[in-house]
Amino acid sequence: MDTFFDLINIVTNFFSIFSKEVTEEKIEKNIDALHKNDWFRDLLANETYHQMIQHNTDVRYTIGKLNIKKLEKNPADPKFEKAIRRAIRKVEER
């Protein structure tokens, strides 16, 4: 199943070349919206994950790429959690 998501991620990244750039403002706005979720607050409670969310460029890029309109409309959508956990897992595997 992860292979499927990796393939989707590759295709999405290819087409994201034509989308807007991820800015710190967008990342912070998405983080503010994600704070509404218990699972995100639990991630921040873990010091290692907190550091990744605050400082790791790959994790922050993933957060910034989340669709802000969908995120604000339904921040509890499980796809947001999956995307962030996948980015964290990739960083941990290095």
Rank of each mutant, 00 (worst) to 15 (best):
K73Y: 11
I88R: 01
S16F: 15
A87R: 08
E93R: 09
S19K: 14
I68Q: 14
Q51K: 11
D2E: 13
R86A: 08
E24C: 00
N13K: 11
E25T: 12
F5T: 12
I84M: 13
N46I: 12
H55T: 14
I53T: 07
D6P: 00
R86T: 08
I10C: 02
T12N: 11
I10P: 00
K29P: 02
Y49G: 00
K36W: 01
N9H: 10
A33Q: 10
T3G: 04
L44F: 01
K82W: 08
R41A: 01
M1L: 14
N67W: 07
D6Y: 08
R41F: 00
I84A: 07
L71D: 04
T23S: 15
V22T: 15
K36Y: 03
G64Y: 05
D32Q: 15
P75F: 02
P75H: 01
E25S: 11
I53Y: 06
R94K: 11
L7S: 10
E72A: 07
M52D: 07
K69S: 14
A33W: 03
L43E: 10
V22F: 01
N13E: 12
P78K: 10
R94A: 06
Y49W: 03
I63W: 07
R60L: 07
F14E: 03
K20A: 11
E21N: 11
F4M: 14
E81M: 14
L43R: 07
I10F: 05
H35L: 14
V11T: 09
R41G: 02
I68D: 10
R85L: 14
L34M: 03
K65I: 03
E92D: 09
T23R: 07
N46F: 00
F5L: 15
N9M: 06
N56Y: 04
D2V: 06
D58H: 08
L43Y: 09
I68A: 14
F15H: 05
H50Y: 10
L44V: 01
D58T: 07
R94W: 03
V11H: 10
D6Q: 10
D42Y: 11
K90D: 14
F15G: 04
K69V: 10
T57G: 09
F15Y: 06
N30I: 06
Y61K: 10
I84P: 01
K65D: 02
L43I: 08
R86C: 00
D38T: 13
Q54V: 03
E47T: 09
